[in-house]
Write a protein that binds this DNA or RNA. Sequence first.
DNA 1: GAATGTGAAGGTTTTCACAGCA
DNA 2: TGCTGTGAAAACCTTCACATTC
Lengths: 222, 222
Amino acid sequence: MPVSMVPNMKKRISESTIHRLSLYFRALSLLEKENYDTVSSKELARREKLTPAQVRKDLSFFGSFGTRGLGYPVIELKDKISQILGIDRTWRVALIGVGNIGSALVSYKEFQKQGFQIVKLFDNDQRKIGSNHKGIIISDIKDLEKEIKDDNIEIVVIAVPATVAQYIVDDVLKAGVKAVLNFAPVNLKVPPDVYLRNENMSMELEYLSFALVNNHSPKKVK
Amino acid sequence: MPVSMVPNMKKRISESTIHRLSLYFRALSLLEKENYDTVSSKELARREKLTPAQVRKDLSFFGSFGTRGLGYPVIELKDKISQILGIDRTWRVALIGVGNIGSALVSYKEFQKQGFQIVKLFDNDQRKIGSNHKGIIISDIKDLEKEIKDDNIEIVVIAVPATVAQYIVDDVLKAGVKAVLNFAPVNLKVPPDVYLRNENMSMELEYLSFALVNNHSPKKVK
DNA sequence: GAATGTGAAGGTTTTCACAGCA
DNA sequence: TGCTGTGAAAACCTTCACATTC
């Protein structure tokens, strides 16, 4: 039996665990830069404001990566997590809507770093179509279905106004795309085999507002 | 006993409940536009992909806003939620770092709509300082502490590179700010009386990547 | 009849605590 | 000795189901 076999993921992994994997990945990247060879669950937890037990439990869902008495090997664990998250490869991403947010995302370095390559831009504005934005020619949104198919796009980012987002996503799905990241403040309808995630930038501000008004204790008060 | 007394919030309200209040608010705003007078927990749930019981339970933490047999009054409930979230007023917001993301946020209409007024911009780039960006003169980041104090800023949005974000937030807190929204992909250290929320835009893409690679079932498979 | 409000049940996630191993 | 890996316990959150009210 091959040693590196991925554990056959019986338990459903929780959303929170996956999100924390992103945090571990980030922390480990930094630890690598700082030339650490190993790191304990305690230190990893400290760096991302979590508990050591949480770190160990999260990682244990995917295998045993540490050494008792020592901790986790930084580079190995980082590689392992990038495998688990599927960011040990590149993804072909299309972005629809080259407005305020859209153009900010094109230049967002973190996406590149993690293998999310925005290779296609779409807009419906005749003044933008055909022009070169950061090295990418903006396509007409009318050609969405064909171009996304032809270009083997795997993930689509939607950054159009809320009022048209549903029409856009309907078109996108016709091209066979199974993963959508939506920045429009609207709840999109997609069939159950499509992965849809929403990025609602007002939500966290509203949380802050709520906390300020209600003296909401951020977590348990120690 | 006054009828409209706000229940004295004994139970700790969960983060998820607060986030769902944002969703209810959004749905109710739409329902108001569509001229609905009342809405049932069932319909509200359908519109935000939740369950009716969840909606009722969430609202029940804050009071009894519905009528049995009828549902919830759209406008009243919307107003009530905006009170709870503290967005029935305006907030003075400063944004630090007028780069890609920063400038996108300045133009982001949703913030305005919900009362978050970006009234101050800071940057460290001499070419930007003093220039007018969407009607706001960009201030020198060196004057952070004084200007934030003088201008009664209540919430600060951080959109600077990860490497300098901690220094910036340290300065911000010297000015007495108690609420920070951080877009830099780094875990900031703040004292326990400061509300800090992070907006990590790669996280949801990583979730999509994970889901695609692992055939992760988005929720329970029905 | 229709739909809320809510204790209680059920399910999920986090934390505890300790056996096991380098 | 130090720290992982993990069942079990505790905490937390969601769903159920029904009494209640309009």
